[in-house]
Every structure is written in C-alpha cells, then in structure tokens.
C-alpha cells in the first residue's frame, strides 16, 4: 500500500517537474525565435538546452544529459557567442531580426504542430513510460555504440573531421 502511494508520489513529483521544465523550455524557445537581441536569444537558447538536459534526466538518459550540458551548453553556445561577436552583430537592440516574410512562418508552424499533435494524441493516447526505469548506464550505452552501431560511429568521426577541416578552410583569412 505504502509502496503504491510512494510510487504515486514520485509520479506526481515527476509530472510537476516535467511541467515546470517544459514551460520554461517553451517560453525560452519562443524567446529564441522572437527576441530582438541576438545575445538575449542565445541566452534563452541556453535555457532551452539546459531544460532539455533536465528532461533527459527524467527520461533516464543520464549520460546524454551530461553530454548535452558539456557539448551544447558549454561548447556550442560559446561558438554561438563568438559567432555573434565576430560578425559584429550589434549587441544591443537591433532594428529587425525578422525578414519580410516572417508571417509566413506562423501558418506553416501551426500546421505542422496540428498534424503532429493529432498523430501523437491519436497514436499514443495514454501510453505510459515505465516507472521503474533505472538510469541508462554508461556501460550499456558504450556497448551499444561500439558493438551494433560502430559503423555510424565511424561515419560520425569522419563527419567531425570533415567539419573541423571545413571550418578551418572556410574561416581562415588568406
């Protein structure tokens, strides 16, 4: 009996946690696409990416969450900020960051959202995630990367190498 209540408590706590983080993420994401200040947009993106890391924890993907923080919140965001600074986009308010056809985006996005929510609600009505899921262990993950998915891993390393070389070639001054 008490175990059930305990499970329910965890369940409620998880749902509340999810709701708060999701709300923060959505607000942050809206800020990313609407903010008039590039740096504010980048900081809002940090919020979304951090929130995503928290959601990964709820989804028992501990290692992915840590990687998300390290790579996204750490490295990628620094890249973005450097990109902003090096292109001398003014750090203050900027006239208009939206293009002339911005309004076109609204119906497209809403249409996609409609279709997707319809499909999802229709397809997964009240499928529940398993409650007793342990965090995915790093060991299991590395087994998966280096055994069945080794080939994509190799391909990925080539992609990264190509990206590094490409970035240097593109960005160097002759």
């Amino acid at each position: 009996m008490s175990a059930v209540i305990l499970a329910d408590d965890i369940y409620v706590a998880q749902n509340i946690g999810f709701g708060i983080i999701a709300a923060v993420m959505i607000i942050g994401a809206l800020k990313v696409v609407t903010s008039k200040n590039v740096v504010h947009a980048a900081l809002a993106l940090v919020l979304v990416l951090g929130g995503a890391a928290a959601q990964y924890l709820l989804l028992a993907a501990e290692f992915v969450a840590v990687t998300q923080v390290l790579v996204y919140v750490g490295a990628v965001m620094v890249l973005f900020l450097f990109g902003v600074m090096l292109t001398r986009a003014k750090l203050g308010q900027e006239g208009d960051l939206n293009n002339k056809n911005a309004i076109l985006g609204v119906p497209v996005a809403l249409l996609m959202l409609g279709v997707m929510s319809w499909v999802l609600i229709d397809g997964f009505e009240d499928t529940r995630l398993p409650q007793d899921g342990d965090q995915v262990s790093v060991q299991a993950l590395s087994d998966s990367i280096f055994k069945p998915y080794l080939l994509p891993f190799w391909a990925l390393s080539f992609v990264l190498l190509a990206a590094v070389i490409g970035a240097i070639v593109l960005a160097r001054k002759d």
Binding site: Q14, F18, Q55, M112, L113, L120, F124, R128, L129
Partner: peptide, 28 residues
C-alpha cells in the same frame, strides 16, 4: 508519466524551431 508529455513537448519545440528558421533574417 505519459509518453505524450514528452512527444508533444518535442513537437512544440520543433514547430517553434521551424518558425524561427522561416522567420529569422540573421543567419546566426
């Protein structure tokens, strides 16, 4: 927890991203 919680969150973020790709002028 309903799996739809997460899937719908993903859908919302996706659509916001799509809006951003269409609406933004600044390449960054």
């Amino acid at each position: 927890m309903l799996i739809n919680n997460f899937l719908l969150l993903g859908a919302v973020l996706f659509c916001i991203g799509v809006y951003g790709v269409i609406a933004r002028k600044n390449a960054v």
